[in-house]
Simulated scan of single mutants.
Amino acid sequence: MAHKHFLVLGASGSHFCDLALEEGHTLTLFVRNATKLPDSLRDHDSVAVIEGKLEDDTSLDEVSQCDADAFISFAGPPVGNKGTPLTKGYTALVPKLLVQNIKRLLILCTASFHGSEDQISFKWHLSHWTLKIFSPDQYGEMISVGEFVSSLAADDGVRWTLFRVGLLRNGPEAEVEATHLGSGKDVM
Rank of each mutant, 00 (worst) to 15 (best):
V79P: 04
I143Q: 13
L9F: 11
E55N: 07
S183I: 12
W129N: 15
A70S: 02
E51G: 05
D69K: 02
L60V: 01
I133H: 05
H180F: 02
L162W: 09
C66M: 03
V187A: 11
G76I: 09
N101V: 00
L27I: 10
E62W: 03
D67G: 11
F71V: 06
G13N: 06
Q119R: 13
I50W: 00
P95Q: 01
G76T: 10
V158L: 00
F134E: 02
D18H: 00
V176H: 08
F122M: 10
G115Q: 04
H128V: 15
H114P: 08
M188C: 08
L86F: 02
I133R: 07
P95L: 15
E141F: 04
L41S: 10
L181I: 12
G80T: 07
K103D: 05
L37N: 10
S116Q: 15
A2D: 15
H125I: 15
F113N: 09
G80N: 15
M188D: 06
N170S: 05
G146Y: 07
H180D: 07
E147V: 03
P85N: 05
I143L: 15
F134P: 08
V176E: 09
A178G: 01
D61Y: 04
A174F: 08
C17S: 02
I143T: 10
F122D: 14
D69W: 08
S46T: 09
K123I: 01
A48N: 10
H3P: 02
L152H: 07
A34Y: 09
L19M: 06
T130G: 04
S59E: 04
R32T: 05
H5G: 08
H15F: 09
V165Y: 03
I102G: 04
V94H: 12
I143G: 02
S14T: 01
W129H: 15
V47I: 07
I107E: 05
H180P: 03
G157V: 14
D186P: 07
R42D: 07
D18F: 11
A153S: 11
T91A: 14
T35N: 12
I50N: 08
D39I: 13
G24H: 00
V145H: 07
I72S: 02
V165A: 13
E177S: 09
A70H: 03
I107N: 06
V47Q: 13
V8H: 02
